[in-house]
Amino acid sequence: MNSGTLPHAETLIIRLPRSGHIAGYAILISRTRNLLAGFLLLGLIAGCGSNVVLQFPSIPIPLTEKIPIAIGLRMPANFKDYVHKEQVYGREEWSINLGNSNAALFTQLFGYMFEKVTILQASDDPKLLDIDALIEPSIDAFEFSVPNQSKTDSFAVWIRYRIKIYDREGALVSNWPVSAYGKSQTKSISSSEALQRAAILAMRDAVALIIMKLDDTTLISSLAGASTPVTAAPAQAPIAAGADTEEVHAGEDDDAS
């Protein structure tokens, strides 16, 4: 549908000069032109990019039995603060800031899945901790499609996580890629909301797969029983020195929706 310009539209908000005052009309035309140029510039700026900031996607308590081992959870820096930027079709730049949502989600997830979870910082030595296994999740890839690309009404998000599992001696025992997919329609919600929803669905999809398949795929439960620190760390204190290290007890995050 074509629409023409509305040269007199701004007379609604600009006081009209009295009739006969030609100079006044010149000022009015000038103001109108400036306003239209301003609106056009604003429109162009607004159409250049979209910024999506993800909120923490809480998960419900899963109907599964806990795996009876103590794990350490170490998350790399880019996992805790992941930002994906992409130019779509050379027209629109999208910035998707997953922020701390992955770290929060995986902390909650493993808190539900294991008897005991200790969160490690980069400087912590897992050999000094009272854990059976160390889990290190990361993001291999993040991709998305917009409706223009897929020729549908939907945004889709693909996330490929990687779950590395080490035994307490630091040997890699499993390296599992987890591919997740989320899709959300744009009908009745804005584009950024739809993309955010698709990302949250992809994260929830990954969580469902991890709950179902982690033990079958990685045999992590077979690492049980090795949780005795090799140094003289206090038996009841898995955190040897790292002030940043924190312990997550099962069921602490039970405020899920």
């Binding site: 998960i59 419900p60 308590i61 899963p62 109907l63 599964t64 669905l201 929830r204 999809d205 969580v207 469902a208 797969l209 709950i211 179902m212 929706s257």
Partner: peptide, 11 residues
């Protein structure tokens, strides 16, 4: 939500 994760799109 009450049956998580058994009625997710994947499961």
């Amino acid at each position: 939500d009450s049956l998580f994760p058994w009625f997710e799109p994947r499961t």
